[in-house]
Structure formats: C-alpha cells, structure tokens
Nucleic acid binder design. Structure first.
Length: 490
RNA sequence: GGUCCUGUAGCCGAGUGGCUAGGCAAAGCUCUGCAAAAGCUUCUACAGCGGUUCGAAUCCGCUCGGGACCUCCA
C-alpha cells in the first residue's frame, strides 16, 4: 500500500503518482457495454485491462469500489439525436421486447467475462434503473443554465459551457477546432450549436422505451447515464474513470461537461484509456465488420482462424501487451501466447515437485521487486510477465539440478507465482489432471500403474493401445522421465 | 482539412539518453522403445536522412510508411 504507483492520466498526458481521495480506498468507474448485440473481442480487451487494474489495487490492499455500468437504453444509432435507440431497433429486428434484447446480451456479456476469469465489479448499474437520477441531473444542469429545452428534448449548451470551462480538455483541443470538424446543422435541427448534445430526447409515437419526465415522455441521451451513476455511487469527484480510447473525444468529454456544469468541480482525478485491438493494423469494430466474437475464438469457428484458442491463452495474449498500446491480432501471435502461457503454467506445476536444498543460488527478492516495479509503473503487465518467465526459468533450472533452492526459496516462488499469475493477472490453469473427482483420480492412478508394469515388460503394443484408447476419450498420456502424467483435453 | 498516436529482429511485443525485456518461430543439443512433451544453448533489432550530445532505438528537425479521433463503437 505504501508503494508509489504511477498512473498515466489522459487529462495531463503524463504519468502521475496515484493519490486516492480517501486513504486506502479507490473509487473506479468504467464504461461498460451497450447490450444490444454480442460483445466482440475488442470490447473484451478493455474489460480485461481494467480487471488487471482492479485486481492489482486489491492485491495492494486497497478497498476498491469498482462500478461498471450496463447501457441498456438511450444509446442512439447516430448522433443526430433522432430515430429510435439501438435496443428498440434491434428489438424490432429480432421481434422481441427491448428488455429481452437487454437480458439476452447482458447474460452473454457476463458469460464472456466469466470465461475470461474477470472479477465482477462491485456495482453494475443499468441506465434504465437510474432514470430518476438522470432526470434530476438534467434538471440541475438546466438550473445552472447550461442546457435548454426544445420541443420536449433537452440539449446541453456546449458553447456556453466553454466560456467557463475548457470543453475539449480531455483531447487537448479548442472549441474552434472542434467546430470546424463538425457537420453543418440541418435546417430542421433543434440544436442551437453544432456541438450541443442531447440530455433528454422526446419520444415519438413509435418509440418503445420511454419514461415520463418534466419535459414529457422521452428517454435519456447516452452520456448522462454515466455522469448520473458515477456520481451516485462514487461521489461528485472520484479517483479513476476508465474506458476505451474511442470514448475519449465524445462520451467522456461530455461526461466531464455534464458533471462540471452541475457541481462546478472536476468529476474525476485520473482518466484512464485503453487502446484498441486491431486486425491487420485496422481497428476491430462492429462497423468495420472485422470483429471476432469470443465464442468464435474459443471454438475456432471463424474463417480467419486456424484453430480455437482457450480463454486463458487469449487473455494471456492481451496481457502481453500494455493496455495503452494497440494490439494486433493474428493466428501466429495467438499461438505464441498459447505456448508461452502453457510454459508458465508448467513451471508452476513443476514447483510442486522440487526438492529443497540447503543452499540458495538465487535472489528471489530482486525478482519480486521487479514484478512490483513493473506493475507500479502504470500497470506494465508485459514487463511483469517477462519477470515471471525469469522465475519460470529458475524453476526449470532447479528441476534440472542446475540451481539450488532452499525451502524458503521454493515457498517464496510459490507465493510469487500465486500472487502475480493467479491473483493479479487473473489467469488460471485450464488443462490439468487436478480434478476433484476422487474416483477418476483413483482409476487413473491404477491405469497408469498397470501401464507402467506392462512397459517394464517391454510389451509396447499393449501400452500404446492403452494410450491410444484413452486419447479417444480425451485423456492424454505423456511419458516423462519421472513417470507418466495424464491430462484431460477439453 | 483539423487533433493526435505510431514505425523495434521471421512474428507478437516491452523499453524512452549509457546497463540493450520477454514470448513464439528457427537452428543445435539433452532426455527418449515409440509418440508427445519438457529442458538447455544460439540468433542482437530499433523506417530513412540530418542535428544535439562524450554517448541516441530513446531528445530535436525533415522525409516516407501505418493507424486513431473529429460520425455509433471498448
């Protein structure tokens, strides 16, 4: 806890020493998914990155309130503030109630997160569950004079806001520059300024999801939900707000404006943004049509995939790059991670059978220190992993009898691997003979014993048949110099 | 057009003034009835051209690539 932790803050474009508002506690808000379709792999990367951050804070002993929302209303197809929201559109398409869409994809999202072994957030609030809070906040913004009502809709007045606060501070841009980049307002547009965005949108007769408000029936704009829910659960100013880099320019910029307009203070101390997953150098996204679904990746059922990859191999692949760098997706890279991950896990298993020696040939403290230094430097997981491979190499060397480890060393290595591989990185062993099924374990022990007997009589035909037959029911036998081991192939 | 980011060995990726990650692949070796694993060793790169410096992949300038945002997106 007394360690100096550096965090790259988008606001200042530099690494800053993390100082929580309340000693020993962290308030963190991360923009969650919009649940109108399946989350793809790029979305998953963001949540895996923040899972790493969440886990590291926990490991350091912080009490963390991690809020990650579910956007289940009010997210329009375009930014024109017209038309139906994404849920209603999808609902019509699939002939379902909007809330059936929400339920379906929320469950799917949770399933994916479970596969990736991410910890659930402390609170997972939904936009539809916080309509009152959003309406209250909009009322507040109107009272403060930064929003105006037009035909049942409410818009945020960006140009007025910018006279008091720097609107484009998060992307380091001035209002004039932003204005140049936007499209002309159509004649029928209700907005006063080109950059103005909707806080509340009037319902049309065909709108499915709508709520009563002081301005009539309607539904909230996209940005207001995060401001309303983050301030409700974390306070008017909280420690960390995260999300994908693509949210920086619009969504997060508007969040700051909304909160600042209400409370006259900055809502967030540290803004953290994760970078994009790319395919052949181009960002993975729904609109580009190059999005992989996690399920396709696990099964290998996709034209661009040579085979399936396990969730942990995919997660390890992501953790081998820094969260602020783009990461390019390819079969080759994924296979490299799959093997590297297996190597790391194998070394951890090897640790169990090491015999302690009376002398020590290593300096465990140095490796441990390097691991913490890596994570304290803006959550540098690639460097952490490099150090863990260093530890793996020591373990292998000890197993070969080339390095001496005391009992203390071995226990220290176990603790190190357990802390960083399982707790901080959130990885888990996938294929192993470690099963809770006592009967299966007993039977396998017997079979291997019998096979050992057969082999010692050099009846290789019989022993190979046993191996082949077992592999047909997905139990793999490998003969090592220390005897045979078995694994279940999933 | 505007605002930024980026170019690192066959591939993926850290590093941001001197100590030159790591993984995969490849080659050689060890172990080995076979199969499969596993282990060890080797391989030294920073787009190009200038500049600053005792010293640059790292700082500055230019050129050439790649990408993001400014429109829904994690």
């Amino acid at each position: 806890m007394q360690q100096k932790l550096l965090i790259y803050n988008t606001l200042t474009r530099s690494k800053e020493t993390f100082k929580p508002i309340h000693e020993g506690m962290v308030g963190m808000y991360v923009c969650g998914p919009t649940v109108y379709s399946d989350v793809h792999l790029g979305n998953s990367r963001t949540f895996i990155s923040f899972d790493l951050i969440f886990r590291y804070f926990l490991h350091l002993g912080y009490k963390v309130r991690y809020v990650r929302n579910i956007t289940d209303a009010g997210h329009l197809e375009g930014d024109r503030d017209e038309g139906d929201d994404k849920f209603a559109k999808k609902a019509k398409l699939e002939q379902l109630e909007p809330m059936e869409i929400v339920q379906k994809y929320t469950l799917g999202f949770h399933d994916v997160m479970r596969h990736f072994n991410t910890l659930p957030p402390s609170i997972e609030p939904t936009a539809t569950g916080h309509i009152c809070e959003q309406i209250e906040m909009i009322k507040n913004i109107i009272e403060k004079g930064f929003a105006y009502v037009k035909n049942g809709s409410v818009y945020f007045d960006v140009e007025k806001y910018n006279k008091e606060y720097p609107y484009g501070q998060l992307t380091n841009r001035k209002l004039d520059e932003l204005l140049e980049g936007t499209r002309e307002l159509g004649g029928q547009d209700e907005k006063k300024g080109r950059l103005d965005f909707a806080l509340w949108i009037v319902a049309k007769p065909e709108t499915l999801m709508k709520w009563p408000s002081p301005w009539g029936l309607g539904f909230p704009g996209w940005h207001i939900e995060c401001s309303a829910m983050s301030s409700k659960y974390l306070g008017e100013t909280f420690d960390i707000h995260g999300g994908g880099m693509d949210l920086q320019a619009t969504h997060h910029t508007n969040e700051i404006a909304q909160s600042q307009a209400c409370n006259h203070k900055a809502p967030v101390n540290y803004w953290m943004h994760t970078n994009m997953l790319t395919v052949n150098g181009v960002r993975m996204s729904k609109s580009a049509g190059n999005g992989f679904l996690p399920g396709e990746l696990f099964s290998g059922n996709h034209p661009l995939l040579e085979k399936g990859y396990s969730p942990m191999a995919v997660k390890f692949f992501m953790l081998q790059s820094h969260y602020r760098s783009t990461l390019d997706f390819s079969n080759e890279a994924l296979q490299a991670s799959e093997k590297g991950f297996a190597k790391l896990i194998t070394s951890i298993n090897t640790l169990e059978k090491l015999k302690p020696s009376s002398t020590s040939g290593i300096s465990l403290n140095e490796i441990e220190k390097a691991c913490y230094e890596a994570m304290n430097d803006d959550f540098n997981s690639p460097i952490l992993i490099a150090n863990l491979f260093e530890a793996a190499s020591i373990i292998n060397s000890a197993n070969d009898g080339k390095t001496a480890l005391t009992e203390n060393d071995i226990n220290g290595l176990k603790k190190l691997m357990n802390n960083f591989v399982f707790d901080v990185l959130g990885l888990k062993s996938e294929n192993s003979s470690i099963t809770t099924d006592k009967a299966l374990n007993g039977v396998m022990e017997m079979i291997l014993d019998i096979r050992k007997d057969i082999k010692s009589k050099k009846d290789f035909a019989a022993s190979d048949k046993l191996r082949d037959d077992l592999s047909k029911i997905n139990i793999l036998i490998k003969d090592t110099k220390d005897g045979a081991i078995w694994t279940i192939q999933e």
